[in-house]
Design a protein around this nucleic acid. Structure first.
Lengths: 343, 343
DNA sequence: CTGAAAGCGCTTACAG
DNA sequence: CTGAAAGCGCTTACAG
């Protein structure tokens, strides 16, 4: 079957292509009679505009790119879901790419998206990323860029984040309130802003409660991919290094679950011997045993807000009235479960 | 900065647009001198072809659509990862859409993708989908369609699946071998081919071992979204209905974890009182306690194979030598853990 | 209210 | 080896 085109409709009806186009696009200067004629035939032929041609003319594709470190990840897949939902509402399609936390890959993905003509890019940075030229290049081409969760403060675009420092503070304070005196921290990699902020929140909570900060109580988990194993490894090391630790604030739930796994193996009781607070509120944290006290990080909402911001900016640009970038901070809350003592 | 175009390069160099295009696209009938001239300038200007124009001319977008029931899902997100990896290798971008297991939404998403001009569609069907006109319509437009995991046998396209019946048979046989005499089944919804097949595999294993099939031992879990809750609910009901069940084969890991959760609450020991086998090998199954015996379903590989098949077909079409659809069945294996007895 | 014309940026058969 | 021309399918300023 021959694909319907404006030309075909125009010939069939003996009307010019221009008028057909206007009728279909609800231009006001078309007679009702003509409009009906055109629309009916279009429906009958199941006419769909050729999007390649429309893109070429309008210079927009109604497509956006989304770059995330990993897809097999509870938090990020929730963000994706939030983005997809809002994008769908506004008629945008989303091309998803994974950076694997690699700077080189992230750069490549950005170029791919740009050369495919996306209208904008939503990104959560790779852990490795410390140079932001590729992001500034996006901005320089007047493409809309919005960052979420893993951001670079220095890049001049909108950002959707949580207050990691505050959330980590709440988590640590909860450990203190429930009676912990010697609190360790399993932190994330050194570069990402959010693991820095979580570390700082932990430290501040200690100091505000007159508990001395001890750098030897801070263990690093480098690699998101090996979170579970790193949790086990650090837990094992911690037991060797310190016999007096009674609480740990851990950078993510998955690391925490690895740690709990190791503690159980070694007969350490949770929360009686060591209390644990994770971060993110992965689904699995609610069903492990003991279930995990953690910080709820609103992934779905973060996705929605990220898309909203993109959409607001792109609309503003079309209206020739661009809006300045802004940073939106979402609320987090502490979810108390079995891995910490009630008080 | 003005975006570089063929026209701009052509003017700058005093060469025709046609020749510039050919030089850039490695046509053989261009002199080396001209080619170098053009390529150097193109690089210098950071020339990127306008993909909208290229798409319009070549009628392909190097973009494919992917429709899956849910994204926040260990198995499916692994499939996505496999697809993305291979797509990237071949220079394809992937637009991802979620059907939420809704037939109406699935139909809508397909139309969206088609009208956006994707080169093909990869899909895992919604549980609700029982009518396949929308899929046949894709085929009728000579778009490449490949189904994976949740398929419709009747649609004439390639399919990448596992042998659910055989896998379920293995799972049930394992329960029997480990000493279970009275084996229940928590099955999935009624429509999807794979929950039907898993049910049939369960039944066949019983019969082959001279264990009578008892329909009252089969419980249904309708809704993928509420897997955990349905697992709990069915476990509770099972304890009321039957005090002699000593093994359960469960349609997915998540349902199994819900069931285990309920059993633990009620003091039922696993595997001593009831042995449990799940399905999928979600990451969390390896870290719950007890860890879950399950069927490993190779999501990443399924994604890779799905893309490969798409790519093979699209290449064949371009070479004017289309290949017939095929069905590829991937291997599964039983992963023995703590929720079943060793023997 | 309608239509002729230009043009988006590219590719490709064809002529020379 | 090079280039003029047509055309992919649409939109939009402009003239009538």
């Amino acid at each position: 079957m021959q694909k319907a085109s404006l030309k075909f409709i125009s010939k069939t009806l003996g009307i010019s292509v221009a008028t057909v186009s206007k009728a279909l696009n609800d231009y006001p200067d078309v007679s009702k009679k003509t409009r009906d004629l055109v629309c009916n035939l279009a429906k009958e032929l199941n006419y769909k505009p050729n999007s390649f041609a429309v893109n070429l003319r309008t210079k927009e594709s109604k497509t956006i790119g989304l770059i995330i470190p990993v897809i097999v990840h509870y938090f990020f897949s929730n963000v994706i879901e939030g983005i997809l939902k809002e994008a769908e509402n506004e008629g945008y399609l989303v091309i998803i790419l994974q950076s694997n936390d690699s700077y080189e890959l992230e750069k490549k993905q950005i170029n791919l998206l740009i050369s495919h003509g996306v209208d904008g890019i939503l990104i959560s940075l790779a852990n490795e990323t410390a140079n932001y030229d590729h992001l500034n290049a996006v901005l320089a081409q007047d493409k809309t860029l919005v960052m979420f969760d893993k951001i670079a403060k220095i890049v001049k675009c909108s950002k959707i984040i949580i207050d990691d420092r505050n959330a980590a503070y709440k988590a640590t304070q909860h450990l203190i309130d429930s009676g912990c005196k010697r609190i360790a921290h399993f932190r994330g990699a050194l570069l990402p802003q959010n693991s820095i902020d979580r570390f700082l929140g932990y430290k501040k909570a200690l100091l505000d409660n007159n508990i001395p900060y001890d750098a030897s109580l801070v263990y690093i988990c480098e690699c998101e991919d090996k979170s579970f194993e790193e949790g086990q490894k650090n837990a094992k090391q911690l037991l060797k290094d310190h016999d007096d630790v009674d609480g740990i604030f851990i950078n993510t739930d998955l690391i925490a679950i690895g740690a709990i796994n190791e503690f159980r193996k070694q007969g350490v009781r949770i929360p009686e011997d060591i209390s644990i607070v994770g971060f993110s509120n992965w689904f699995m944290s609610s069903v492990t045993s003991p279930s995990l006290t953690t910080i709820n990080q609103p992934g779905f909402e973060m996705g929605q807000k990220t898309f909203h911001q993109f959409h607001a900016e792109i609309k503003a640009i079309k209206d020739k009235n661009p809006i300045p970038p802004r940073t939106i901070t979402l609320e987090t809350d502490l979810v108390k479960r079995e891995s910490t003592k009630s008080f």
